[in-house]
Amino acid sequence: MKRRAVLAALPLGGCAAQPLGYMTDTAGHAADAISQIGWGLAIVSIIVVVLIAALIALAIARGRQRLCAEGDVVGRDYGGLSWIYWGVGLSFPVLVALAVWTFIVTRAVAEPPRPTALTIEVTAHRWWWEVRYRGERPVDDFVAANHLVVPVGVPVRLVLTSSDVIHDFWVPKIGPKMDMIPGKTNVTWIEADRAGLYRGQCAEYCGLEHARMAFTVAAVPLVDFRRWRMAEQRPQDPGGGRGATIFASACAACHAVRGTDAAGIYGPDLTHFASRPTIAAGVLPNTVAGRVKWLADTQGVKPGAAMPQVPLDPADRVALVQYLGTLR
């Protein structure tokens, strides 16, 4: 129950106004460093554009003046070349400085500042995220979906791949993006400096529902993370009742719930499902209303999703939603 309180208290995305913005309110060492060079590049760019716009205006004014003074005649005019020499001569050191700055920042964010203590494997599917926490022993491994929980201030090693097409793992508030390519394993890292609930988004076009392939990352203090992990490792209490029966017959072919007979591998693992903030990779909030909507109109909410419309009468759907709510 402590865990729920922690998650509920998290502010969404640091700055709820722009949950995917990476120029302000960043909450990770890498994202901070990148936003700094981003501002630097943006300011230099704006200065250059304003300067050039002023030069063009000045040049036109001067050119008009000369037309009035000298008439519409063709003539050779000397001295123009110095514009090119000055222009290129001033641009060059600026570009070199920006390039050097780029390499300094690149070096700083390419590798974690300290060795990583934790590994999370994320495998992308069309259109959801399979999240596997590596434990110290293989038996400690556990699988979740569409939601990562990471400790604050600890660099986390991410092992990224895809089961189908190319996707991209991107939590802009915390760090840079990295492609998830089938047949290839990309290793990167994230570290959140501040507790919070951050939004992630697939950033490589991956077909029909690319737009709605999001996820969430909860950064929590290390003690809370440890407690959460212990809870998460535990299998689900099998429970019972009508909802469990319906789940076993209608859902278990694709979805797994550890501790029960449900062991499907096609869809997201639903162990401790109720502790996740969203349904269907960020499409709906994980509330009773959201669950009802998802089960009632799966293909209408997320056309093309691998999950079919499961035929359920309304009473069964309510029972199933209630059961899902017990998967804490």
């Binding site: 030069l55 000369r66 037309l67 008439g71 123009g80 514009w83 090119i84 641009s91 060059f92």
Partner: peptide, 22 residues
């Protein structure tokens, strides 16, 4: 970006040192 800068400053210089018809 360097060769692009050459063209840009060449064009601005052409306007500045020319007699501009708008």
């Amino acid at each position: 970006a360097i060769p692009s800068a050459v063209s840009v400053f060449s064009w601005i210089a052409t306007i500045y040192t020319g007699r501009v018809r708008l």
